[in-house]
Every structure is written in structure tokens, then in C-alpha cells.
Design a protein around this nucleic acid. Structure first.
Length: 256
DNA sequence: ACAGTAACCTGTTTGC
DNA sequence: TGCAAACAGGTTACTG
């Protein structure tokens, strides 16, 4: 976020505070006049250091942040603006699964950050770690992977893709997968995430990235959204099950 | 303690 | 054609 680092907040407009959690009351008073000194990320939380505290933003699944000129008229789902003189940081989120919370200290302290697992592309995330955390767990490995306490950043699409790449059946009990296979799974997760980031992410339908353009990784997906189609590995038919209400697509012969 | 499900929300798609 | 229901997703809270 090179657009706002070093700049000072000149105002805040909250048009719709009802997000995943209510936008922190008194946000404008807390940050108006303060300067943005740092921008970090933890899991899917954006951590913007402003003055002595932290603005913690989550984009949910349909949220976005844009830099627009201060004269720009807000649209239907433009719920809040952080003003920086002639420019605004505008938070848009049609489905309101995102959140904007003000934390009064730095480093940020919040229950939502406390129990987060390691970053998937960090060295703390490796096969031995997943293997250890999974012992005794009976839930499906896909649900295990999507638990942010285990590892952050692996959502439904990438869990599907990584399990296919690693040849692991999404319904297999997490505790009944060998160390060797978890090593392969970590490799698959890193590979999938790395390629997705490179391609600008995965966007579906109306979703776009921070520049308003679609992500191109959707074209590289092997299983997600391809139920009924032929498996790229064996030619068999991809199947779908619902797991916690989430679409789970896999190849019954390549994934065991 | 753990596993599974409901809940939040709305634009889009599907089904009658 | 029109309307209602289903669907999608990240994450937490709740239930069993």
C-alpha cells in the first residue's frame, strides 16, 4: 500500500458500519490527524499502523480497497472512506463479510489475531508441523487445512487445488495421513499459493483485484469449479461433495 | 475437546 | 417470463 504510507488522515466517512463486526465506534476521532507509518499483513488481515494504534481490515470474500480522488461519489457498497487530503482509501464490500476494526495499540492485540496459525509461505509451515498438529484429529483433512488456527490463508479454492496436487482425498481423516504425505501437501500448498499470487489471484464472476482487474488463476484451476469434467491427470470424472456447506471437488482415482 | 452446522450478506444462477 | 429458492465464500459462534 505505497499510496498511503507516510500520509496523514484528514477525515473518515463511515456510511455503513454493519460489516462482519460493527466498524469501531469513534474511528474518526481516533485516527484523524494521525499518520500512517506502516502497513503489514497477518493471515488475511491487513494491519495499518496509524498514529499509536492499528486499523485492522479484513476483506471477507467480496471486499476491496481502492484509492480514489476525494471528489469521487460513493457507490452502493462503498461503506467507508479514510481520507488523505485529495485522495481517499475506499472500502467496498457488497456482501459485508469484511471488517474494519480500530485497535488502540501497536503491535496490534486482538482475539482474532491470537490464535492464528503460521503463514503458509513461511518456514514455520512444513510437513512435520502439519503432521504433528493433525495427530488424533478425525475431521476431514480439507476442514483441517481451512482452519485458520492450523494455517492461515488457505481458503476453499486453494484447499481443493492443493489436495488434488498432493493426491490426497479431501474427506480423509486428518490424523490418518502419513508424515510423507503431509510433506507433499505443504509443497502443494506453497506451489498453488505461489502460482496464484503470481497470476494475480483467483476471481470469480464479479470479483476483481485491487486494480479492478480479474485474477487469472481461475484458468489454472484443476478441480475447483470443474465437477463433471475430466481429470487432467487420469481422464476420470471429477466429483463433488459438500463439506461444511463448501464445494469440494476431487478426482476419486487420483486422490486417496 | 472435538466435529459439524448455522450464521452473517447480497449478486448471480438455477429451478419451477 | 417472473419469481422464489439456492448458491457462493471466510470466519466465528453455537450446538451436540
Amino acid at each position: 500500500m505505497p499510496h498511503i504510507r507516510g500520509r496523514s488522515v484528514t477525515g473518515v466517512q463511515v456510511r455503513e458500519p454493519r460489516l462482519r463486526w460493527p466498524v469501531t465506534a469513534g474511528l474518526a476521532d481516533a485516527i484523524t490527524g494521525a499518520r500512517v507509518s506502516d502497513v503489514q499483513r497477518r493471515g488475511k488481515y491487513l494491519l495499518i499502523r496509524i498514529g499509536g494504534g492499528c486499523l485492522m481490515i479484513h476483506l471477507g470474500m467480496s471486499g476491496s480497497l481502492r484509492i480514489v480522488s476525494s471528489g469521487s461519489r460513493p457507490g452502493k457498497h462503498d461503506h467507508l472512506d479514510i481520507c488523505f487530503g485529495d485522495q481517499l482509501l475506499r472500502f467496498t464490500d457488497p456482501r459485508r463479510f469484511g471488517s474494519v476494526l480500530w485497535l488502540s495499540g501497536w503491535p496490534p492485540e486482538h482475539a482474532l489475531l491470537d490464535s492464528l496459525g503460521p503463514e503458509p509461505l513461511s518456514e514455520d509451515f512444513h510437513g512435520d508441523y502439519l503432521y504433528g498438529r493433525s495427530r488424533g484429529r478425525k475431521l476431514p483433512v480439507k476442514a483441517f487445512l481451512m482452519d485458520s488456527r492450523i494455517v492461515v490463508g488457505v481458503g476453499n479454492i486453494y484447499a481443493n487445488e492443493a489436495l488434488f496436487a498432493a493426491g490426497i482425498h479431501p474427506l480423509r481423516q486428518a490424523g490418518r495421513i502419513s508424515r510423507r504425505r503431509y510433506v507433499a501437501l505443504v509443497e502443494a500448498i506453497c506451489d498453488v499459493l505461489g502460482r496464484a499470487i503470481e497470476a494475480g489471484g483467483t476471481t470469480l464472476r464479479d470479483f476483481t483485484n485491487s486494480e479492478g482487474k480479474p485474477g487469472y488463476f481461475v484458468q489454472a484451476l484443476q478441480v475447483y469449479g470443474r465437477v463433471g469434467q475430466a481429470c487432467g491427470q487420469c481422464g476420470g470424472t471429477l466429483r463433488e461433495v459438500r463439506l461444511g456447506g463448501r464445494s469440494t471437488v476431487y478426482c476419486p482415482s487420483c486422490q486417496r
